[in-house]
């Protein structure tokens, strides 16, 4: 790719009068040797699957294998359709859709990792609800995914996108930044405004730890996806309004790296700290383990090793 930083990405977009999406599509074609039409067709297929995940999460029973999660998307959708959500209809609809996709994920349904499965609800939540609201074409949305991908590419290569490496700021945080920047472009904002939206969004999740109960992508991952979608809408609005990230977005990404590297392992997807180790988190974990036979060691010889080690 011709860009390593958000600044370089925005500069190419400005100099060549191309959208972020167009820059990403061209660079992807050049890097992989795959024809442009195939690249766009694959992303279009991914967008179809995102819409399908939203639909499933809102209309079908989604209970996870552990039984710890499911059914919250429908509750929020009911509030949107039959009540008065405090955050307004568009925000709470994005929230319901994001919850829906994350619940489908937890129930072993099909999703697109954006950038990971743990953060797979935010981009579909923002994209599908915005498409319905603004009447955008699928083609427009697919371009938006390339814009989100370009932003994610920079974050992933300069910091982290996995909770095991950099905490939840790297997963949910990255997804919020990607969704916010892409939404600015989808709504006709400039590349510069999109980059500010990314920085504004990422600042708000710096330090977010990854502390899933029983190590499963459910508590608190699903609600963080719902709230993340709302944050992405808000950050895009700030960017579109002309609010600037006083600390340049690339520098915010480097802070994510700094904070993630310093994060104790108990707060990086191990289930050994944070919400996972609260009294309730421990109780839920014990409940899941009850009656479940632990795996036998791989051989008798190995079993001896385990005994000795203990």
């Amino acid at each position: 790719m011709r860009f390593r930083t958000l600044k370089e990405l925005a500069a190419i977009s400005l100099e060549e009068s191309k959208t972020l999406a167009e820059v990403m599509i061209e660079d992807q074609a050049a890097e992989t040797g795959v024809p442009r039409e195939e690249i766009v067709a694959q992303m279009a297929d991914y967008y179809e699957k995102m819409k399908e995940a939203v639909r499933r999460g809102l209309t079908e029973q989604t209970v996870s294998r552990s039984g710890l999660s499911g059914g919250d998307a429908v509750k929020v959708l009911d509030l949107v359709e039959n009540g008065t959500p405090s955050s307004g209809d568009p925000s709470s609809r994005a929230m319901a859709y994001a919850l829906a996709v994350s619940e489908v994920n937890a129930s072993m349904g099909r999703i697109i990792a954006t950038p990971t499965a743990g953060s797979c609800g935010i981009i579909p939540g923002v994209f599908v609800s915005s498409q319905e609201r603004f009447g955008w074409s699928d083609e427009h949305m697919v371009n938006g995914l390339f814009a989100a991908g370009a932003i994610g590419y920079v974050i992933a290569n300069n910091s982290f996108i996995s909770g095991a490496e950099g905490g939840c700021q790297a997963e949910v945080g990255s997804a919020i930044g990607m969704a916010a920047g892409a939404l600015v472009e989808l709504r006709g904002g400039s590349a510069e405004q999109a980059m500010h939206a990314v920085g504004l969004a990422l600042k708000n999740t710096l330090g977010l730890i990854c502390d899933p109960v029983a190590g499963l992508v459910e508590i608190p991952c699903i609600v963080r996806n719902g709230l993340g979608a709302v944050n992405a809408l808000a950050a895009a609005d700030m960017g579109l309004a002309g609010v600037r990230s006083a600390i340049p977005s690339d520098e915010v990404v480097s802070v994510m790296l700094e904070v993630g590297a310093a994060m104790p392992s108990g707060h990086r997807e191990t289930g050994q700290g944070g919400l996972a180790q609260t009294p309730t988190g421990r109780k839920l974990t014990e409940g899941l383990m009850k009656g479940r036979k632990p795996l036998e060691p791989e051989s008798e010889e190995a079993a001896e090793t385990v005994k000795t080690a203990e």
């Binding site: 994920n105 999703i111 590419y153």
Partner: peptide, 11 residues
């Protein structure tokens, strides 16, 4: 970054 298409819950 966008992908893979997968069944959940964890990439």
């Amino acid at each position: 970054i966008i992908g893979p298409s997968m069944v959940g819950p964890s990439s």
